[in-house]
Design a protein around this nucleic acid. Structure first.
Lengths: 214, 214
DNA sequence: CGGCAGTATTTTGTATACAAAAACAAAAGT
DNA sequence: ACTTTTGTTTTTGTATACAAAATACTGCCG
């Protein structure tokens, strides 16, 4: 449960499942099976149960009414509510960043945007998904507040499988990468209202596009 | 793990520990002991381990470097960062409520405030702590967004033991309850900027007072 | 053919056992 | 007296066993 240098079986299982969920390999609504996973990972049920229990404690999995655990799924309304909360967090992050931007954080955001543009120009979808996440995470880290980062990242993870569906064509990637520039300009404007409103605009567009493909 | 009508041993243990942590009975930094808890609850180590693991997954407990789990504690700086994040969430909640306040939510907030005033006038500290939490939770629920409610409640839980220390005398209770009135006026003003700025003022005062006693 | 009861199977929650790692205490060496 | 080594105890992580609950399947009856 608490090894620092050696990753415990529980941690390993938890990480693998989390990754599969966040990239959509394990789709919302899918049932996870203790004994099947025990065979898959070559361990007893004990660490499987612990990993599954930890993931339910984090809301990533949800228990069935009587039995079974399932990958959390969201209705259209729930997704709207999640986006609303995410919208507020992202706007707050943008405001905080605009008020305390330092050279290092600024260069990290710009480097992340450079990666986004490169992946988009190359039509590399998987690379773009990664670069897009890294771009947003650079903004959260620029807040200098790990708790803001943690919440924002958690919302990103929850919406990840749904947002990913809006990136299909090379044009989709390019359009998204280019929209980051306006966002950066707003955040770097040193005006907190401009920064948070710029992020609100960006998140509203993201939400509208996500609704279209889900 | 997922019984709806019957509370499992794991859930029971988790709830009891969570409650003890949030009221400060289990202080930050205290070590929790599997075998001691197994004796205390009259069960084997298995459900204890699962409950402890779930609480570490939620950040409520933290693993030691090599062994043991401890109630999470926060430095002054960490507490500041948590308050900053909490401040943003609470301001966002106030803004959302001011934009969509309905009669039921309004009456629930006012009823919660009535309870606060009564507990304060009676000098009932424990009652006031409960009523104060219920007041803020009524605001979160008035957002109509369970995700906003969830995050805000989580921050309240994290800061609970620290905030509780500022309520010692009857005067402390009365002052706090009276400060809610300004907050309510701002939220009910139907102006979202007034609502969020009112909440920012309230949270800033709460933070300053909390720093004084911690 | 549909519904019900009984049986078999699967899933879940927990207890217990075992082995490895970490911590502590005592003894031996310098 | 201090340090190192060895032995003992405690803690941790996992496997296995057991019992209870839930579900699926089959056969019988109206």
């Amino acid at each position: 449960m608490n090894t620092h240098t050696k990753v415990s079986t529980v941690q390993r299982i938890e990480s693998v499942l989390m990754e599969e969920i966040s990239v959509g390999e394990l789709s919302p609504g899918v049932r996870l099976d203790e004994t099947g996973l025990a065979e898959r990972f070559g361990v007893s049920r004990t660490p499987i149960r612990e990993a599954l229990s930890r993931l339910t404690a984090q809301g990533i999995l949800v228990p069935g009414e009587k039995r079974g655990v399932f990958v959390a799924e969201y209705s259209r309304q729930e997704l709207s509510q999640i986006f609303e909360a995410m919208h507020e967090i992202e706007a707050a992050c943008a405001r905080i960043v605009s008020q305390r931007l330092n050279l290092l954080a600024r260069s990290e955001i710009e480097a992340a945007q450079t990666e986004c543009l490169a992946a988009a120009q190359a039509g590399d979808r998987a690379g773009y998904l990664r670069a897009n996440e890294a771009f947003h995470i650079a903004i959260y880290q620029a807040t200098g507040n790990p708790y803001m980062e943690e919440i924002a990242t958690e919302f990103r993870r929850r919406t990840g499988p749904f947002r990913a569906k809006k990136f299909e064509t090379k044009d989709d990637l390019i359009r998204s990468a280019e929209s980051h520039q306006a966002l950066i300009d707003n955040i770097f404007s040193e005006d907190s209202a401009t920064a948070s409103n710029g992020m609100r605009t960006h998140m509203t567009e993201s939400f509208m596009q996500t609704l279209k493909v889900n």
